[in-house]
Amino acid sequence: MTALLTVRDLDVNIGNVRVAAGLGFDLAAGERLAILGRNGTGKTTLLATLAGLRAPEAGALALCGESYEALGTRRAAQLRGLLPQGHIDAFQSTVLETALIGRHPHLGRWGWEGREDERLAREALAAVDLAGLGAREVHTLSGGERQRLAIAALLAQQPKLYLLDEPLAHLDLNHQVAILELLSRRTREDGVGIVMVLHDVNFALRYADRALLLFGEGRTQEGPVDAVLRAEALTRLFGHPLRERREGAARYFLPD
């Protein structure tokens, strides 16, 4: 079976800053990859590159075995979804309308959202604990609710590959866990793949299968979480000492 996402010899720069050099990995269906790194190391840029929205300096990307050029923008949008970091609401819009934007790549040029699209959007809203808020104005939502709405739009898009830029931003603890549980359930049951930028090492340890560390200046490390998420590497990554603790079989990290 071809991997969902294939990355080969990828060089990514922002101006003169190197984000990744010669990066290569495969993400199979059902796998979750966490990207970790300090602020400004280029996690968002890397994610946009993986989404095919920004040309890499060098290297090749394949989504479901095909390059983004071969797929085209519409087919690519059916296969991979991106959760951006900020959400722009320049005009008034309801929660349901906002969730429905995820259906765009599945509709034809003259198509309108039908019953099935509305059902998918309402299901997605329910999945992120926003059921019954469909008629609310987006402006009236709290930051955390707005973030969950963006995730609902992504769920309604039904991509095979989810690229999430800080999916836990603005969420309270119970919703952080709920969203990570939801995403993990999708990987197990629907075989989707997930790449997410996380800042919480312990969530990465618990809810990711693999981890990609961005050390800056193009240096990266990618592999299974058990191998990559180690105290020395994380201490170097964040420039702050982290100590590993164990409780039974579970490992977790505490900053000094």
């Binding site: 946009a48 989404a51 929205l53 923008t73 519409r74 690519a76 949008a77 059916q78 979804g81 991106l82 951006p84 900020g86 959400h87 722009i88 609401d89 320049a90 005009f91 906002t98 934007i101 995820g102 765009h104 790549p105 509709l107 040029r109 003259w110 198509g111 898009q157």
Partner: peptide, 23 residues
């Protein structure tokens, strides 16, 4: 008119629109 739905997405930000397949 054929691009009206694309314009709906454009109002929600360039990155979000591009990720949903809007040129």
């Amino acid at each position: 008119l054929p691009f009206a739905r694309d314009l709906n997405l454009l109002a929600r930000g360039d990155l979000a629109a591009r990720a949903l397949g809007v040129p």
